[in-house]
């Protein structure tokens, strides 16, 4: 890289601002044939809960214009399986891994954080208080300032390193929620999780998803995400991580100009599995062509 691509989320220094979003990148290994995982600033692994979860019934996915709906429902083998079987496989990549932590009760979030804390190479967790696809917990914590603050505060006490909190766009004022989690001790916020949506198969007269509603993602949500990142970055002092429909270096730069210190590639990993590994170099090329020597010069210029 010719450009200085480094970025800092408080105490968390990343070689470049491109991460992959939880739930779209498995545990990273699924994408090893398509990129050097080391090219990423970080990768956020699948939402991890205290107990194993089978997730929601099929069908869990529907295509929508320039996007998709999902209702996976946090299927994962549980935190103990992650610690025993997945974490030991990372080796030199440990510093790139961020674990997304989900739960139904505050105590569950805290317990997962406590169990992950001894993994010294794990530099950060992302608190998922914004999953729209689970009946209990998830987004319920992320849609009120009190709920968001109380789960953040509880996990803050249990987790000694970087704490990122992932925010839901399904709220009246995402800025108020961001301020609440900042006040409760979050080191950074990531936004946006999926927008709650719905689609109907009119021929069969049935919802497209087993859960009726689900989370919408993909290029269609990008303008909403850029707007929310811009609003939140103006309101909080902690770093903001932007995501929602990013499919190119240009999209990533757009989020950085809106105020993001880093970005996450989500749904686009399903479209082009090599994209996230390529985007850092493409941002570098863009910066060179535009006389930008340090990428973060562009942060929040709007």
């Amino acid at each position: 890289m010719v450009t200085d691509m480094s970025t800092q989320l408080g105490d968390l220094v990343l070689s470049n601002p491109v991460m992959t979003a939880s739930g779209t990148f498995g545990y990273g290994f699924e994408y090893e044939d398509f990129m050097a995982l080391d090219n990423l600033g970080a990768f956020i692994v699948k939402g991890t809960t205290l107990e194993p979860r089978q997730g929601n019934d099929y069908p869990r996915m529907a295509q929508t214009p320039a996007g998709m709906l999902n209702a996976v429902g946090l299927q994962n083998p549980g935190v103990e399986h992650f610690i025993e079987h997945t974490w030991p496989r990372y080796g030199a990549l440990e510093s790139k891994v961020i674990v997304n932590v989900s739960g139904a009760k505050i105590e569950d979030y805290v317990r997962v954080a406590e169990l992950l804390a001894p993994l010294e190479g794990l530099r950060a967790i992302e608190l998922n208080i914004s999953c729209p696809n689970v009946k209990q917990g998830g987004m319920a914590f992320g849609t009120t300032c009190d709920g968001a603050a109380s789960v953040t505060r509880a996990v803050r006490d249990a987790w000694p390193r970087h704490l990122m909190v992932k925010l839901s766009p399904n709220v009246t004022s995402i800025t108020d929620i961001a301020l609440a989690v900042e006040g409760a001790g979050a080191d950074s916020v990531s936004l946006i999780n999926t927008l709650m949506g719905m689609a109907i198969d009119i021929e069969r007269r049935r919802p497209m998803l087993s859960t009726v509603t689900g989370g919408m993602s993909g290029p269609a949500v990008k303008p909403v995400a850029v707007r929310m990142v811009w609003q939140v970055a103006k309101a909080v002092k902690i770093p903001v991580v932007g995501l929602g429909g990013i499919a190119s270096a240009a999209d990533a730069i757009e989020f950085i100009m809106a105020g993001a210190s880093a970005v996450q590639i989500g749904t686009y990993n399903f479209v082009d599995p090599s994209a996230a590994g390529r985007i850092p170099a493409e941002i570098d090329s863009w910066c060179q062509a535009h006389g930008v020597s340090r990428l973060m010069e562009l942060k929040g210029i709007i």
């Binding site: 699948k46 869990r60 999902n70």
Partner: peptide, 15 residues
């Protein structure tokens, strides 16, 4: 089954 990623990452096509 309907799938998104084809790689075992998204967990949409489960049986």
């Amino acid at each position: 089954n309907m799938m998104a990623c084809g790689l075992g990452a998204c967990l949409c096509c489960v049986e």
